Amino acid sequence: MPAVTAGFELDPRIERDTEPLMWLGLCELRVMNDRRWPWLMLVPQRVRAVELHDLTPLDQTMLTFEADMVSKALKETTSCRKINIAALGNVVPQLHVHLVARNEGDPGWPGPVWGYGQREPYRREDLHQFIAAIKASLSR
């Protein structure tokens, strides 16, 4: 993956809970290591970005474009009913955007994924398979 923006440091909690997938331009795309939901995360590589309004108008546009591109790939890969997109930041203030594939009957449906049960890490093979499927969808 390319070098990050000078001075940018990924929050250690994001680094701990996710795996890198690929660089998109503005954002690093990461996979939440929780097999209960297909869950991706966009992390804009901007120093001190906490809120969307901390980004320049051009970066805001790029984030919207990348979120759209990733949500389409996630929906294509999982055939899910709904994509949940959120930028909460209550626990980890560094700006990051969650994209979660949801289906009726998944753990916690229809409620939010946050705070529901305990995280269940992927088996390495399953994680690599999911990453490969997302990359393939994004390359189409």
Score class of each variant (00 low, 15 high):
residue 1 M to L: 15
residue 2 P to C: 09
residue 6 A to R: 13
residue 6 A to Y: 11
residue 9 E to I: 04
residue 14 I to D: 05
residue 15 E to R: 10
residue 17 D to E: 14
residue 17 D to Y: 05
residue 20 P to K: 12
residue 22 M to P: 02
residue 22 M to Q: 12
residue 22 M to R: 08
residue 24 L to Q: 07
residue 27 C to A: 14
residue 28 E to V: 12
residue 29 L to V: 06
residue 31 V to H: 12
residue 33 N to F: 09
residue 34 D to E: 08
residue 34 D to C: 10
residue 36 R to E: 08
residue 38 P to Y: 03
residue 39 W to N: 08
residue 39 W to L: 02
residue 41 M to L: 15
residue 41 M to W: 04
residue 46 R to F: 11
residue 49 A to K: 01
residue 49 A to V: 12
residue 50 V to G: 00
residue 51 E to Q: 10
residue 53 H to M: 07
residue 57 P to Q: 01
residue 60 Q to W: 03
residue 62 M to F: 03
residue 62 M to I: 07
residue 64 T to R: 06
residue 66 E to H: 02
residue 69 M to A: 00
residue 69 M to E: 02
residue 70 V to T: 01
residue 70 V to H: 04
residue 71 S to T: 07
residue 74 L to H: 06
residue 78 T to V: 00
residue 84 N to D: 12
residue 85 I to A: 05
residue 89 G to Y: 03
residue 89 G to N: 06
residue 89 G to E: 06
residue 90 N to G: 07
residue 90 N to C: 08
residue 93 P to Q: 10
residue 95 L to W: 03
residue 101 A to H: 06
residue 102 R to E: 06
residue 103 N to T: 07
residue 105 G to N: 06
residue 106 D to M: 09
residue 107 P to E: 05
residue 107 P to S: 01
residue 108 G to H: 04
residue 108 G to A: 03
residue 110 P to K: 11
residue 110 P to A: 10
residue 111 G to D: 14
residue 113 V to L: 02
residue 115 G to M: 01
residue 116 Y to K: 10
residue 119 R to Q: 12
residue 121 P to W: 09
residue 124 R to Y: 14
residue 129 Q to C: 10
residue 130 F to Y: 08
residue 131 I to V: 14
residue 136 A to R: 15
residue 138 L to S: 03
residue 140 R to W: 13
